[in-house]
Write a protein that binds this DNA or RNA. Structure first.
Lengths: 212, 212
DNA sequence: TATAATTAACCAACCAGTTAATTGATTAGA
DNA sequence: TCTAATCAATTAACTGGTTGGTTAATTATA
């Protein structure tokens, strides 16, 4: 593998990689294509050469990110059989991924807070699969009698909402912990695994209220 | 009350009102001050006359919105004494307000997904009070033995995350319900009160796992 | 030589913010 | 009560900088 002066694949990948970081830092509107090109060390025209639009690039970014989290969760899911373990695995895997790739929560919250203003069509195309898995776990859990009264859509957003917010607000919570009186615990020290475990535990209580 | 050609208070109020709508629709960066002025039927310079900056206006907007939700929740809270009722009231009141004023979830999610990039200082100044109330309810609940093992920060984001996402994604979920196969229930028909009731119910199960 | 990758220079549209002049209401003085 | 002065509210026109996007020429590779 010799280092060429020209490598289309490498350029394209560099653009996507830096675009993920930039979009999640600044948001769609504030992300400048000039700055992106500068970060990549490429000419700005390259961005439009490989991706038609800013919007086209953003779609590619969202696709990439959603594919990544999807694959991580789906792959982990194979290692379980019982719905309870599947649910716990889903939550812990999402939490771990979100913590290691903090652009995911940032991008997702921004997109969802607009009801997918930028990429409405593809958003629930890609997100549907994750939700379908989550929904299926709960459904099978109910059939097998280990879950009760599950409303997948609400519970899905409960898991994603809590985890995404805990990840994105971490800097804010750290700052608050320093300034604030001691009375309020902002959970600044908690690491993501503890948080995930807590959510898993509480989720189990929620879903099997009677049969214990 | 005669209709004057000049009314400073009315102009200022018009700017804030339309700014709330505009910021929550477009986000901070994409909200144009030219368009804002056009929506208000005022000259653009008026915006900078009453509020120094775009940022200054945005801060005023966030202050207004956070004050509104705060007052609504605080006021309702006075009607209860038992922590369980207080918690239920908190959730239902926030849900109702968020549904009737959908700009709140949009603005809040956008701001939190940046860890308060635009107005970091004032954000947790204003949000702290709401969280302090929530935290206090749980604490008193634990002292009185009706709640167990509560981690206020996580539970707070669980409530806000779920409700805010359910409100902002409503159009998306409605659209998905039409296109999607029937297998996936996106909760498109649920109204906010049902959702709030569900969360309250599940929350209660979470918080009193042993003593029932 | 043909083609894919890369570049510099450019453009019109839009942006937040300014300025200096103008208009309307309020008030003080006669 | 009329008027002149004062001050707050409002405006049109402008600015310098940035934006997404284009184009035509140039380079490297096969």
């Amino acid at each position: 593998m010799k280092t060429q002066k020209r490598d289309a694949e490498a350029s394209k990948r560099a653009i996507i990689t830096h675009a993920i970081a930039l979009f999640s830092e600044k948001g769609y509107a504030s992300a400048s294509m000039d700055e992106l090109a500068k970060r990549c060390g490429l000419n700005k025209a390259m961005v439009f050469y490989y991706f038609k639009n800013k919007k086209g690039l953003y779609e590619a970014v969202m696709q990439e990110v959603l594919d990544q989290i999807q694959e991580a969760v789906m792959e982990e899911n194979k290692t379980h059989t019982r719905p309870k373990d599947e649910l716990a695995g889903f939550i812990r895997t999402y939490a771990k991924f979100a913590c290691e790739h903090p652009y995911l929560p940032a991008l997702l919250l921004k997109e969802l807070s607009d009801s997918g203003a930028v990429v409405p069509d593809m958003l629930f195309g890609s997100m549907r699969k994750l939700f379908a898995l989550f929904s299926d776990i709960l459904k099978r859990g109910e059939e097998q009698g280990c879950f009760e009264d599950a409303v997948p859509m609400i519970l899905y957003f409960m898991v994603l909402g809590t985890l995404n917010l805990m990840v994105t607000t971490k800097p804010l919570r750290l700052k608050a912990a320093q300034l604030d009186d001691i009375a309020l615990d902002t959970c600044a020290e908690c690491d993501i695994d503890e948080i995930a475990d807590y959510i898993v535990e509480k989720m189990m209580y929620m879903l099997k209220e009677k049969n214990r």
